[in-house]
Amino acid sequence: MPWLFLLLAVAAFAVALNASSMALAVICLLVALAGTVAWVLGLLAQRVGNQSRDDSMMLDPMELKRLRDEAEARRASGASVAAAAAATAAAATPGDSTQA
């Protein structure tokens, strides 16, 4: 769609160059300026639209809370497994040092 504005601006500029009336030339130059501005703004809008995130990928607050709770539970279970492994290693260490 922005390219249509550029085409309109070029056509208006061509008409302005070939116009014999000063009023027609001024009107065509104003149309060419407006078409050029609309073209640039259209390109910028397309660029921003292409880089924006998909709204369907956003999480609602309840889903975010559920994910945080799951992560906290995983972290807590990982800490308890690490603590159990450390306790097992600490219990095995004194027996190993008496054999040396």
Results as ranks from 00 to 15, higher is better:
residue 57 M to Q: 14
residue 96 D to F: 12
residue 25 A to P: 06
residue 85 A to Y: 01
residue 62 M to C: 07
residue 45 A to P: 01
residue 2 P to K: 03
residue 35 G to S: 00
residue 15 V to K: 11
residue 76 A to L: 15
residue 66 R to S: 11
residue 2 P to Q: 04
residue 68 R to I: 12
residue 83 A to D: 09
residue 74 R to K: 12
residue 63 E to R: 04
residue 62 M to R: 14
residue 63 E to Y: 04
residue 51 Q to L: 14
residue 30 L to I: 07
residue 19 A to I: 10
residue 4 L to Q: 08
residue 78 G to C: 11
residue 97 S to V: 15
residue 60 D to P: 00
residue 7 L to G: 07
residue 78 G to F: 09
residue 86 A to Q: 11
residue 49 G to K: 01
residue 68 R to S: 15
residue 19 A to G: 06
residue 44 L to S: 06
residue 92 A to H: 00
residue 57 M to R: 14
residue 56 S to D: 13
residue 49 G to W: 04
residue 12 A to S: 07
residue 78 G to N: 11
residue 21 S to F: 12
residue 70 E to A: 08
residue 43 L to T: 01
residue 76 A to F: 15
residue 1 M to A: 13
residue 89 A to T: 09
residue 59 L to G: 05
residue 29 L to C: 05
residue 55 D to V: 05
residue 100 A to P: 12
residue 6 L to I: 02
residue 82 A to F: 08
residue 62 M to E: 15
residue 5 F to W: 09
residue 70 E to M: 12
residue 94 P to R: 10
residue 72 E to Y: 08
residue 92 A to M: 05
residue 6 L to C: 01
residue 92 A to G: 11
residue 30 L to Q: 00
residue 15 V to N: 11
residue 63 E to V: 03
residue 98 T to S: 15
residue 54 D to S: 03
residue 47 R to I: 12
residue 8 L to E: 06
residue 19 A to Y: 04
residue 46 Q to V: 11
residue 27 I to M: 13
residue 98 T to E: 15
residue 69 D to G: 01
residue 70 E to R: 10
residue 97 S to W: 10
residue 17 L to N: 14
residue 5 F to Y: 08
residue 36 T to W: 03
residue 25 A to G: 09
residue 35 G to Q: 00
residue 94 P to E: 01
residue 42 G to H: 03
residue 39 W to A: 03
residue 21 S to D: 14
residue 2 P to Y: 02
residue 21 S to A: 14
residue 72 E to V: 09
residue 23 A to T: 11
residue 41 L to H: 07
residue 31 V to K: 01
residue 56 S to H: 05
residue 47 R to E: 09
residue 48 V to C: 11
residue 84 A to W: 06
residue 97 S to C: 12
residue 71 A to M: 12
residue 90 A to D: 01
residue 45 A to K: 05
residue 24 L to Q: 10
residue 77 S to E: 15
residue 13 F to P: 07
residue 75 R to Q: 13
residue 60 D to M: 01
residue 23 A to W: 10
residue 80 S to F: 13
residue 26 V to N: 00
residue 32 A to Y: 03
residue 26 V to K: 02
residue 48 V to F: 10
residue 70 E to I: 09
residue 81 V to F: 13
residue 10 V to D: 04
residue 84 A to D: 09
residue 6 L to T: 04
residue 55 D to M: 13
residue 21 S to E: 14
residue 37 V to L: 05
residue 84 A to P: 04
residue 66 R to P: 00
residue 58 M to C: 06
residue 19 A to K: 07
residue 11 A to N: 04
residue 20 S to V: 15
